[in-house]
């Protein structure tokens, strides 16, 4: 059963990995596909391309990092205030956030494009973080709010009685206890930014500024006569590796800590 689940989730990935290592001839059906020797030709191809794939990987990482940092920075205080200061205002903002999270983003493109044109935000990676953050914020706030709701307020009362100011309370109590929630929120935000396609497509036109999804689309559409399966697979593998790394790193935080045992048994 477990094996089946493993196959189910790993199968496509492994197939992609296998494909990326095959020579182009083997992919279009000449010769037995299984028997062909593995080669790094596809990787050389995409990494040497114009622009090289590592360039868009870097761009995506920059945008992802910026978006994640900005989102957490804004979401944490907002979630904290919404959770701890109950009242009609907090309720209203919470409801508005939920509505925003459910709003179809497609309807925003024209507006966003107009904004980019008016404020000259096109082809600017830092500016691309702004709409990404705006779109990631509602979910991030909801996630962090739920995590803060699980923190007993007495912990902060105790910290206040110990003479700890807000800054110290945040550093010594709040952040360590929220680390798992922050880590998972960060991963989701980064993932969203990493995968985002339509906004990047409309905002970025210079090839050396392309993010990964748009660069890959360009790769696929670069020739009318051939479909570069191999190159495409290689790009996919390269695009997944940073995410894999990120999750492995964040896992430490997610598993560690936990508020279990803070209050009662």
């Amino acid at each position: 059963m477990r094996l089946l689940a493993l196959l189910w989730s790993l199968g496509p990935l492994l197939w992609q990995l296998h494909t990326s290592l095959l020579p182009p001839e083997a992919l279009v059906g000449q010769g037995p596909a299984g028997a062909a020797a593995w080669t790094l030709a596809n990787y050389r191809l995409v990494l040497a391309g114009d622009p090289p794939l590592w360039r868009s990987l870097l761009n995506s990482a920059l945008v992802g990092g910026g978006t994640t940092a900005l989102t957490l920075l804004l979401a944490l205080p907002c979630a904290y205030a919404l959770q701890r200061r109950r009242g009609p205002l907090a309720w209203g903002v919470g409801a508005a956030l939920l509505a925003a999270a459910l709003f179809p983003t497609v309807l925003l493109f024209l507006g966003l494009l107009e904004l980019a044109r008016t404020f000259h935000l096109g082809n600017n990676l830092a500016a691309l973080c702004l709409p990404y953050t705006a779109l990631a914020l509602p979910l991030a706030i909801l996630l962090l709010r739920a995590a803060i709701a699980d923190l007993p307020p007495e912990l902060e009362d105790a910290a206040r009685l110990e003479g700890m100011g807000l800054g110290m309370r945040v550093r010594a109590v709040l952040l360590p206890l929220l680390a798992p929630a922050l880590a998972s929120t960060a991963i989701l935000t980064f993932l969203f930014s990493w995968n985002e396609y339509p906004i990047a497509l409309t905002w970025i036109s210079r090839v050396d500024r392309l993010t990964l999804p748009t660069a890959m689309a360009r790769l696929a559409g670069s020739s009318v006569f051939t479909v570069p399966y191999g190159a495409f697979a290689a790009a996919t593998v390269l695009g997944s590796l940073p995410l894999l790394l990120l999750v492995l790193v964040a896992q430490r935080w997610i598993v560690r800590g936990l508020t279990q045992g803070a209050v009662k048994g």
Partner: peptide, 14 residues
């Protein structure tokens, strides 16, 4: 300079 013992003890779990 208040010492308070909470019903839940409010120890820092981390």
């Amino acid at each position: 300079q208040v010492a308070m013992v909470f019903q839940s003890y409010a120890l820092f779990p981390h």
